[in-house]
Amino acid sequence: MNLKPLTSRLPPATRESLWAYVLVSPWVIGFFIWTAGPMLASFFLSFTEYNVVSPLVWLGTANYRGIFTVDPLFWQSLKVTFTYAIMSLPAGLVVGLAVALLLNLNVPGLSIWRAIYYLPSVIAGVAVAVLWQYVLNPRFGVLNWALSLVGIKGPGWLADPNWALSSLAIMSLWGAGGGMILYLAALQSVPTALYDAAKIDGANAWHRLRHVTLPMISPVIFFNLVMGTIGTFQYFTNAFVMTQGGPVNATLFYNLYLYNNAFRYFRMGYASALAWILFVIILFFTLLIFRSSSVWVYYEGQLRRRR
């Protein structure tokens, strides 16, 4: 169909709107079909028992009641996920920021160091998992070898229920370079005039960090915190490849448990209910962080209402 005669009769504003909608429509249609549609379907399925092969059975709220009242693994997976979040999230933020601060000191070969620290975060997840299985090997792994140099007998790491989760938290620092690169960009955009002014006012290095650097890069810290929180609650690949949730469910992350229900036990309805509970949890914490941002995130040029 030739659109030109039709569109040429329309006013320019309408024509412009039409083209805008036409150009944006692939995304909108894709969103409805591939995101909104499955989300609504999963919400419906969460009230059913459905194993893909047999017809679904309406259960009402039984899946949700079962999750909260009779499923010990739901609570175990929540405990594992929260514990991991408490261990890895602050550590990841602090290490990423610390490395960025070091690299911001005009060190020689900055681009090389930056590449070295950033490189791990672009390596595929499964490859990293396999690599760390060697690093964490109790007998010939690098970590226990390093500990043995200072006279410490390393634990069994992934084979030990008391250490398996900590092992994954330590491993998560491997990806701190992803946050580091954002921090570094933010640090390099802080106007030097602010530091000069602070120096004249007698501020030492700590004061400059506390009162100039951190407020100026707080939007990036906020971004990393939000993304890190969402990513932590959706943690899956490493646990799936390295531990499959063991030993003794010590690394049974929420998403892994959800996956097991969907694709190993074929309880799609139950897994959908788990997914919606996860959605609510993530939404809650994300909103909490957003609400708190007015207290600690500084946006240059933002007008704040005075109390």
């Binding site: 329309l10 006013p11 504003a13 309408t14 709107s17 039409l18 909608y21 429509s25 909108v28 249609i29 409805f32 079909i33 549609g37």
Partner: peptide, 15 residues
């Protein structure tokens, strides 16, 4: 003029 509502209706019908 094709407004946003019309467009969304059209998209919803298509989907």
């Amino acid at each position: 003029k094709l407004n946003r509502r019309d467009f969304l209706r059209l998209s919803a019908a298509t989907v």
